[in-house]
């Protein structure tokens, strides 16, 4: 699904990623953990094509093609989805319109027919119920005046509607209380499938209690310094990042 080879990248001429390697196969869930400032969000943003990041070396292959050559919208059209740490408010843009325009943009890019209004309404109600997203919020402007939990649930709803092949969850747990975290995680778990891969970026192990990863990677100082199974997350929870950083420095 996704192969990252020796990726290096700068932000404002400062080297943030210093050689990241990662291989994500279809159906796998990878957790990327690490201390603040380790480059986790930078990696998520580069995958989604956000401006402001300069890739200085290495490559990213998504389904065998060079991901970095694709525009942000082309990546989304080809099945990459980024659930954002800080979902943006879009005053005046109706949530339903937003979802429908997104779905249709993706369908058009795949030469599929646009979804008709009735089927869309049925689908959006069904998906909203499955991720426990308040139906009333569908009629409001995207994220405008939503609580932190509602914004994150809206991200998961979008993901459920767009059915990506590769979903990247950037600190989806930040700012959520335990109940909100659980509903968001339930929503994500519903979307797990053998065709869909996920990269879960998080600072804390907490989220991984609900979304069980197949692989855990620790990103520090712009490199993956340790990879392991889900037990690595537990070890980090118990011992913090300090020991790993020391080992890496040694």
């Amino acid at each position: 699904m996704l192969t990252i080879k020796n990726l290096t990248a700068n932000v404002d001429s400062k080297e943030i990623l210093r050689g990241v390697d990662l291989d994500v196969k279809a159906g796998e869930v990878h957790a990327i953990m690490g201390p603040n400032g380790s480059g986790k969000s930078t990696l998520a943003h580069i995958l989604s094509g956000r401006d402001g990041y300069e890739v200085t070396g290495g490559e990213i292959l998504y389904k065998g093609q060079d991901l970095l050559r694709l525009e942000t919208e082309e990546r989304a059209q080809q099945g990459i989805f980024l659930a954002m740490q800080y979902p943006v408010e879009l005053p005046g843009v109706n949530n339903m319109t937003f979802l429908r325009e997104s779905m249709n943009a993706i369908r058009r890019s795949r030469h599929e027919a646009e979804i008709d209004a009735v089927s869309f309404m049925k689908l959006v109600r069904e998906k909203a119920a499955s991720v426990k997203f308040d139906q009333k919020l569908l009629k409001r402007s995207v994220n405008a005046g939503f609580s932190g939990g509602e914004k994150k649930r809206n991200e998961i709803l979008q993901m459920a509607m767009l059915e990506p092949y590769l979903a990247i969850l950037d600190e989806t747990d930040s700012g959520l209380d335990i109940d909100a975290l659980r509903t968001v995680a339930d929503g994500v778990n519903l979307l797990r499938s053998p065709e869909r891969s996920m990269i879960v970026v998080t600072h804390y192990q907490r989220l991984l209690e609900y979304i069980e990863p197949d692989h855990v990677h620790v990103l520090a100082g712009g490199r993956i310094i340790r990879s392991g199974g889900k037990e690595l997350a537990l070890e980090l929870e118990a011992k913090g990042y300090g020991w790993l950083l020391e080992e890496a420095a040694a």
Partner: peptide
Amino acid sequence: AVFYLRSRGI
């Protein structure tokens, strides 16, 4: 906001 919409395929 433009990026947000583009990241959804628009």
